[in-house]
């Protein structure tokens, strides 16, 4: 049996610090602290749950969930992210696919997947890029997108896969990336809803990921924006960890970046 030893929800973007230096530094420091706390659990591998920003999953092919199966991934290089390869963890990916198949999830298996900022920003700024990863992508780009409840169920599948199909020594961290509130190229573009952001993080700090999921995608999008729906990735990570709560590590409402950013370290059970 493997074991999930650490998990978190965290935003997955940074932009230019010019004009917002203090807030940007708080965010960088928050990523670093969150990463240190995850690394303290000595994970061997990291599952990174993210959305795709149409570098891989575009309108040509629209799978609901994609999982990377490869031994190595090369970043896209968006946002000037260095194209330094990141190791993959095939055994864990295969375990997840098998468990998912049993649980009724048809994961799209990708031997090639170009990592965009959604995966790379958490890895780089949390200091995790030296660890092998399994990228798990939730397609929120097109309708119908996976429901929050469906993401919660897939989180349970991740846990079962880790616990039933991996060697005892394998220690797994789970990072759910994206959010918080942002409206991208729709009415309200550029707004940040601090109430939604704190509500979401507080709920997760109380172990209430199921309640957040129960509210449904439409409610999340209404309150957090078409980009805020990325919190389904946070919910999946929380469920994989059987999180009983968590600790708010950082939060900044970055209107010049069009988004609220935060990070919550989960209490793994």
């Amino acid at each position: 049996m493997g074991k999930i030893v650490a998990a978190c929800g965290v935003s997955h973007i940074l932009m230019s610090p010019h004009g917002c230096e203090a807030s940007a530094q708080n965010i960088v420091d928050g990523f670093k602290t969150l990463g240190e706390r995850l690394l303290a659990a000595k994970p061997d591998v990291v599952i990174v749950i993210s959305s795709d920003h149409m570098f891989n999953i575009d309108l040509a092919m629209q799978p609901r969930f994609v999982i990377g199966m490869s031994d190595q991934y090369t970043p896209v290089g968006d946002m000037d992210i260095p194209r330094i390869p990141v190791a993959g963890h095939r055994a864990l990916a295969e375990a997840i696919v098998k468990q998912a198949d049993q649980d009724g999830f048809d994961l799209c298996q990708a031997e090639e997947y170009a990592l965009d900022h959604g995966v790379m920003v958490p890895l780089l700024f949390m200091g995790l890029s030296h660890l092998p990863i399994v990228p798990l992508i939730v397609n929120i780009n097109t309708q119908p997108m996976p429901s929050a409840l469906r993401c919660l169920a897939l989180g349970e599948t991740l846990r079962q896969a880790v616990e039933t199909s991996l060697p005892v020594a394998t220690r797994v961290a789970v990072v759910g990336g994206g959010g918080l509130s942002h409206w991208l190229c729709v009415p309200r573009h550029g707004e940040v809803d601090e109430v939604f952001d704190h509500y979401t993080m507080d709920k997760l700090c109380n172990g209430e990921q199921a309640a957040l999921a129960q509210a449904g995608n439409a409610d999340i999008i209404e309150r957090g924006g078409n980009g805020g729906i990325e919190i389904v990735n946070w919910l999946m990570a929380a469920q994989a960890a059987h999180s009983s709560g968590g600790e708010k590590i950082f939060y900044e409402p970055m209107r010049s970046w069009f988004t609220g950013l935060g990070g919550v370290l989960y209490h793994v059970n």
């Binding site: 932009m15 010019h18 920003h53 149409m54 946002m79 000037d80 992210i81 780009n141 991208l184 190229c185």
Partner: peptide
Amino acid sequence: HPILQMLYLIARNPSMAAQVSIRDYL
């Protein structure tokens, strides 16, 4: 599509590309 709007704006606008970048942290 909103994401494709963003990708197009970044591709066609150098100031936008400079804003949506991590180059200052490298």
